[in-house]
């Protein structure tokens, strides 16, 4: 029996399918409970309790929400383009999930070990903006189209800053492969790229928040100005898909920040002399480290949302073009200098 299962697993397509399911099912569960934690954490920050009615301590709340959205009617606005109206959320979720194909969860745990993984993720996030554009345009609604224009400009602007921040990482690691980038940070906690690339690290994460249209950059939704933005006309499962894609993208940005700047699955205790921690089991590389680092960034997303008021639109544009892009360009020169100075432990030539 076991042999049979193993032999089935050896078939390439089955093998890949199993791996895809092994990534997607935990991802979707994380998304579901991320929404729960968002409501709980923001609730506590605002001295409220948050959801606590469905199931013990409200643990079944995300399941109830999902069921409700699934069984609600999908309403097509009059004059809407039905085909494009349904393609839009599909495109959004497809790109949001496809980006996860190249994310490594350990030195050997990766579905697609691409040489250009970093660029692939950038490409997927930039294609994702079409979902928003299509949704806004096909809804035949003024609010939706306004949100579309805002999003298009915002995402394209912050993509540049994000791209330059990633150029810094690529210069330091001399590879576009995420596994190689993590391997380049090994040694100790001081080997992580967040230290020499600190400005790029901060810019990467802030651009990531802007790219996913989250608070304080959520002018695409801007409920006080344009109701709910591009998905104002969406209901039921189509709306749920937009929601899912947004949260999957947030987790993607978080895990990328952990992989590129905070050593991914490497342990922070690596190479620590104190109390012999460096030789204990704590120093081993493990997916637990990667996930806990990701959780830090996911928490930051929620913290931002509870703390900052929404940016004004012209301030968003100014921050992206006049602050972030110049800083990243200057820091790319600084990396060049560090590279020639062979600054240890990051820029030792192999």
């Amino acid at each position: 029996m076991v042999d049979l299962i193993l032999s089935i697993y050896e078939i390439p397509i089955i093998n890949i399918l199993v791996k895809i399911i092994a990534i997607l099912v935990p991802l979707l569960l994380t998304v579901a409970y991320f929404t729960y934690f968002e409501r709980k954490i923001i609730g506590y920050m605002q001295v409220r309790i948050g959801p606590n009615r469905v199931g013990p301590r409200g643990w079944l709340q995300p399941i109830a929400d999902a069921m409700k959205l699934m069984f609600k009617e999908i309403i097509f606005p009059s004059g809407a383009n039905k085909i494009l109206f349904t393609i839009a959320p599909t495109l959004t979720i497809a790109t949001a999930l496809a980006a996860w194909a190249v994310i490594p969860f350990g030195a050997e745990m990766v579905l697609a070990d691409l040489n250009v993984a970093l660029l692939y993720i950038l490409a997927m996030t930039s294609v994702g903006v079409y979902g928003v554009i299509l949704a806004g345009w096909s809804s035949n609604s003024k609010y939706a189209i306004m949100s579309t224009l805002r999003t298009a400009a915002q995402v394209v602007s912050y993509e540049i800053a994000m791209g330059f921040a990633l150029v810094g990482v690529v210069m330091a690691a001399r590879s576009l492969n995420i596994g190689d980038i993590v391997a380049g940070q090994s040694g100790s906690i001081w080997g992580w790229y967040m230290w020499p690339l600190l400005p790029l690290f901060v810019i990467y994460f802030i651009s990531g928040v802007a790219e996913t249209n989250r608070a304080p950059f959520d002018v695409a939704e801007g409920e006080s100005e344009i109701v709910a933005g591009f998905h104002v006309e969406y209901s039921g499962i189509l709306f749920a898909i937009f929601f899912l894609a947004e949260y999957a993208n947030m987790i993607l940005i978080s895990i990328m920040a952990a992989l590129l700047f905070m050593g991914g699955w490497l342990s922070p205790f690596q190479g620590v002399e104190f109390l012999g921690l460096g030789s204990s089991f704590l120093a081993g590389s493990s997916i637990v480290w990667l996930l806990s680092k990701t959780a830090i960034f996911m928490f930051l997303f929620l913290w931002f949302r509870a703390t900052f008021p929404r940016y004004r639109y012209d301030q968003i544009m100014r921050l992206g073009w006049k602050v972030f892009i110049p800083i990243t360009i200057v820091w790319i020169y600084v990396i060049g200098i560090m590279y020639y100075a062979e600054l240890a432990p990051w820029f030792i030539k192999g």
Binding site: L119, L122, A123, W137, L149, A152, V156, E159
Partner: peptide, 18 residues
């Protein structure tokens, strides 16, 4: 291939649509 997608699909065509 990926640069084509990033530059043309992700940026140029978005502004074009705009």
């Amino acid at each position: 291939a990926i640069i084509l997608i990033i530059v043309y699909v992700g940026a140029v065509m978005v502004l074009f649509l705009f």
